[in-house]
Write a protein that binds this DNA or RNA. Structure first.
Lengths: 151, 151
DNA sequence: CAAAAACCAAGTGGAATAGTAGGAATTAAA
DNA sequence: TTTAATTCCTACTATTCCACTTGGTTTTTG
């Protein structure tokens, strides 16, 4: 029951962009170095974030990436859903195609997965990048960094 | 962010054993057929549950498996932890080796993963097999079945 | 024009998942 | 005492996903 590096790296990258919000585009190289993440790998992830509209890009020299919306309007859940897919501990509780399960109304384990899904969604949707910025300034020298190399 | 079939099948199997609690050992073949799960695969999973003490086995003809404790004393969290490992959306918030992260006190994304971990744990630890039995009798003909073939 | 950057597509090694296959040991019942 | 039912154990396999790497092309600024 782990999130992969896709979601975790993506969230860190978005946090870095949030810290730079309003200061123009930030080159991916700086984001990657800041977090100790492979730039080429992060490039793939941020490409998906761009297609989703959560980030914008500026091409060419002096270019880079920026948040597509204000930090208040981007939640952790938004980011995770783009990079990890729908939040659901089992296929039968993926919100959109809930009717995939023909036994839905008689299934007891499904009730468990629904509760897990809802509680994870509630946590992730309740935290915005702006909230994370606020928390970072509470924590002295706050950074999104956690295990620079393997995390 | 899915649980694998390990945890999902294991939970279903445990629910079936709970339904049979107090009635002697139940052969794995019946559990597997009831749920439409490969018996040989389920055998591996229930072996781990047995080693953890959550189920007991009776060998030989007329043998089978039984819950190791009363349904009230076994939670979904117990089962999931045996089959899926510690509940933690990222390695840096695996309870035991929390100190794996040298930046723990300055890390902002870690706070998110801690909240996710705790909320998932809270849900899974708050539901026992006995609770599931009660829910099953509320739902007419309640079964743990959900998508018999692929789930 | 040169350098900095985003963009794109394809390949790669390793690990985990979701099983299969085949047998050995144990026990109840015929 | 044999037979059938059942657990127990190990090893194998195909597929998928992860976490990258590689090698470019295009766009833009100075």
């Amino acid at each position: 029951m782990r999130f992969s590096t896709r979601g975790r790296y993506g969230l860190k990258a978005m946090f870095v962009l949030a810290q730079h919000y309003g200061k123009g585009p930030l080159p991916l190289k700086q984001v990657a170095e800041n977090q100790g993440i492979s730039e080429a790998y992060l490039e793939q992830l941020i490409g998906e974030l761009r297609k989703s509209g959560l980030v914008k890009s500026v091409r060419g020299a002096q270019g880079g990436y920026l948040l597509g919306k204000a930090p208040e309007k981007i939640t952790v859940g938004d980011i995770i859903r783009v990079l990890e897919g729908p939040i659901a501990p089992a296929d039968c509780v993926v919100a959109d195609d809930a009717d995939i399960c023909d036994q839905a109304d008689r299934c007891v384990t499904r009730l468990i997965w629904e509760r897990v899904r809802d509680s994870v969604s509630e946590v992730l949707d309740s935290v915005s990048l702006a909230d994370m910025l606020a928390q970072a300034s509470e924590i002295q020298g706050g950074s999104p960094q956690c295990q620079p190399i393997s995390q």
